[in-house]
């Protein structure tokens, strides 16, 4: 399959799978409640997946593709974390993170 066709195929399959997960418990096909263990595992899905993406985009150097704990993105992210913790605001966090990164990369 060529690239564009493949994108459509993945999109339609994952879109349908996402719909099924949302629809599942009132579809009329499943009448039982989730086992408590599964319920506990599912609550950690967003934290685990989003943290993986955050870590990979912040702690992998764009130049070397290697792990780093000291560059402009790490500094900006640490500041954004403090802002997110205090304000719980998406807008404030975005402005803090992008603003600090811009300042660090363009003024120094």
């Amino acid at each position: 399959m060529e690239g564009a066709t493949m994108i459509w195929a993945i999109m339609i399959v994952t879109g349908f799978a996402t719909f099924l997960m949302r629809f599942s418990m009132f579809s009329g096909l499943i009448h039982r409640a989730l086992p408590p263990a599964l319920d506990r595992y599912l609550t950690y899905v967003p934290i685990a997946v989003l943290s993986a993406i955050i870590a990979a985009s912040v702690f992998i150097s764009h130049e070397t593709q290697m792990p780093t704990i000291w560059n402009t993105r790490v500094l900006a992210a640490v500041l954004a974390m403090a802002v997110a913790f205090r304000t719980k605001s998406v807008i404030a966090t975005l402005i803090a993170g992008l603003g600090v990164l811009w300042v660090l990369e363009n003024l120094f």
Binding site: P46, I47, L50, S51, I53, I54, S57, V58, A77, A80, M81, A84, F85, K88, S89, V90, A92, T93, L94, A96, G97, L98
Partner: peptide
């Protein structure tokens, strides 16, 4: 990642 930080933290 900034958006996700605002969601996760």
């Amino acid at each position: 990642p900034m958006t996700f930080i605002a969601i996760v933290l």
